[in-house]
Design a protein around this nucleic acid. Structure first.
Length: 597
RNA sequence: GCCCCCGUAGCUCAGGGGAUAGAGCGACCGCCUCCUAAGCGGUAGGUCACAGGUUCGAAUCCUGUCGGGGGCACCA
């Protein structure tokens, strides 16, 4: 991606993607600075808490700032006095029509309607780039997500993690970060040996022998083709040999096939990784040792014996001297072993090396997307990254809660044995990638999500995907109608229209909602919360539907009018909504529909 | 026993320390000769689990209690 700053577009120009809220905040901060320079306020005040936000109650104006209340104590002046002095100066700005002190010291601002019209024009000019932010400043971010064990097909839980990670990556890209999407292949542990043994039985089966799918092996049918493929490649050469002679061969073969399958599953969801990193590739290269040496130099590795966990002592617990990472030095509850008693690495050791590798690759920020059942590893992982990066690289770990499936009005119980195991492929084939992605983003990542097969296939406002796409389709419909009537409605023409004709409160409300988009992108990106985009789009769609229906009662509010110039102004507003919906859906990875069928 | 997440309308959930806490569903009352009614408007519904604390101001931050979920050395 290209950092916007390099585009050479001067800030403040119409082409510059505008964020009215940050513009006005800059005005407030500058004005406060002037007041300080003139002695009306003390010098050196911390202005970081000064906010400019849309007020909850529209009667309070278009924007409100808390500046006076935040600064009252440090400035040693009553809030209303500061607010009044600030208001007097702000009134000189042509963008503002009013600045009123209210309540305990709020300063309510009203904007010249021309400002909303500027936003609409900016949206039309910027198109899909409208709302793109520079807050990332080109910083390198690594988003690690999915990272499912390469032992089988992806299931619904992985699906939510995949959608979340991909949408988050899109969001951060849109906010000006240089994003790398990465998958960590857990191909170094015991579970891939189990995979190899399971595949070997299918290989025997392919050669006409009775497979022995013992307890603890993977029984899934998906390994049958792997067995067939092994037969095609190796014929009977691996039969009747001790495990030691075929294990590595079959393991490599099977994990490769599983990763192929996982890539195909991800492709169904339109998820593409930039980098696949292999756990196994860390072994035997000295990189695990190097990472631990680094920690050792800091005195964070030692040989020791852990206390048994209080309250619930495991039955087979025995004191053991182990190589331990002093994760407690960076906020963990206990120190964590990096070596098993037989001298081999715990899973945590390669994880440390992997995260060290990410730090060494120069990322400014790391994000791990884990299933909620991995919540216990958050502190130790953060401790490792904090130590290995000298506190330079923040690690944010997003935990993805469960997906509860519903079908025919009741919970759909998943069971591997009963064959009711729902895979990513099952979900996408039934619901489609667009619906799956959107619905998976209609909850905060750390809240459980209900995925109701009946609901998501419904073509009504109960289905939020449909609701948002319908709004986009309605705008497209208007544009088609305009073309039929010979009204010029390309974006350049619309941007030149006299938007001051859109003076109805419902139209202004819509323009204000559009103006919130760049601000929302920044809020969502700062908190790594792509679901905010989905909720915003729902609200924007709602405002469009609302205006549309007002047009049923009041024909002067329809987008298409007798007067071409009036039509163009109104179409411009509608088109700006479509632009934002399109950009937002793009972040979510959902296709904007041009018509509903 | 310890750690993490959650607790907001009957249900499912939004809500960056700001003003009178919102949406959808469900319930009730309305709106199509008219750009897609696949939609919209309205009414009703709240001790933001509880108790303290910080703050000019707390659903939001801190501590504790209760309730639900997840996790707790040689499994990933």
């Amino acid at each position: 991606m290209t950092p916007r700053a390099a585009s050479g577009i001067p800030p403040g120009s119409e082409e510059e993607v505008m964020n009215l809220f940050s513009d006005i905040r800059a005005l407030v901060v500058d004005t406060l600075g002037q007041m300080a320079a003139e002695g009306a306020l003390p010098a050196g005040l911390d202005l970081s808490a000064v906010a400019v936000e849309p007020p909850r109650d529209p009667a309070h104006g278009d924007m409100a700032t808390n500046a006076a209340m935040v600064l009252a104590k440090p400035a040693g002046q009553p809030p209303r006095a500061i607010a009044e002095a600030l208001a007097a100066r702000l009134a000189a700005d042509p963008r503002l029509t009013a600045a009123e002190v209210a309540g305990p010291g709020f300063l309510n601002l009203r904007l010249d309607p021309a400002e909303w019209q500027r936003v609409v024009r900016a949206a039309l000019a910027a198109g899909p780039e409208f709302g793109r932010s520079h807050i990332g400043a080109g910083q390198k971010v690594n988003v690690e997500f999915v990272s499912a064990n390469p032992t089988g097909p992806m299931h619904v839980g992985h699906t939510r993690g995949a959608v979340f990670g991909d949408a988050l990556a899109n969001l951060l890209d849109f906010a000006g970060f240089a994003v790398t999407r990465e998958y960590y292949i857990n191909d170094g542990g015991a579970q891939v040996d189990v995979l190899a043994r399971s595949a070997y039985e299918r290989y025997r089966e392919a050669n006409g022998l009775e497979p022995e799918i013992r307890e603890g092996l993977y029984p899934g049918d998906y390994l049958i083709p792997v067995g067939e493929a092994l037969k095609q490649t190796y014929g009977t050469a691996l039969l009747d040999k001790p495990e030691s002679e075929w294990l590595v061969t079959v393991r490599n073969f099977a994990t490769h096939r599983m990763m192929q399958m996982i890539r195909e599953d991800l492709a169904l969801l339109n998820v593409t990784m930039d980098v696949y990193s292999s756990e196994k590739a860390l072994y035997g290269t000295g990189r695990i040792e190097a990472a631990l040496d680094r920690l050792r130099e800091m005195g964070l590795i030692y040989e020791g014996v852990l206390e048994p966990p209080k309250g619930k002592t495991p039955e087979d617990w025995e004191p053991r001297e182990q190589t331990l990472f002093r994760s407690t030095a960076h906020g963990d509850d206990v120190d964590r072993p990096v070596k098993k008693s037989d001298g081999s690495w715990t899973y945590f050791a390669p994880d440390i090396a992997y995260h060290y590798d990410k730090v060494e690759r120069g990322f400014d920020m790391l994000i791990d997307v884990f299933g909620a059942d991995h919540g216990g590893y958050v502190k130790r992982m953060k401790a490792a990254v904090a130590a290995l990066s000298g506190g330079r690289v923040p690690l944010d770990i997003k935990l993805i809660q469960l997906v509860k499936l519903w079908k025919n009005g009741e919970p759909f119980k998943m069971s591997k044995r009963a064959g009711t195991f729902v895979t990513l492929r099952d979900v996408v084939e039934q619901a489609g990638a667009d619906v799956t992605r959107f619905v998976m983003l209609t909850r905060k990542n750390d809240a459980a999500l209900d995925f109701d097969f009946d609901r998501v296939l419904e073509q009504s406002k109960d289905n939020p995907v449909f609701y948002v796409q319908y709004a986009h389709a309605r705008v497209c419909s208007v544009l088609r109608r305009a073309a039929e009537q010979g009204i010029a409605a390309d974006d350049a023409t619309l941007a030149a229209a006299d938007l001051s004709r859109n003076g109805h409160e419902s139209e202004i409300a819509l323009a204000k909602k559009i103006a919130e988009w760049p601000r929302l992108v920044e809020i969502a990106a700062r908190s790594n919360e792509p679901h905010r985009v989905a909720f915003y789009l729902y609200e924007l769609a709602s405002d469009l539907h609302s205006l549309w229906n007002r047009g049923n009662e009041d024909t002067s509010l329809r987008f298409l009018q007798e007067d071409v110039a009036v039509s163009q102004a109104k179409i411009a507003l509608a088109r700006a909504v479509a632009v934002v919906i399109s950009a937002g859906l793009g972040i979510l990875g959902v296709t904007p529909a041009e018509e509903m069928r």
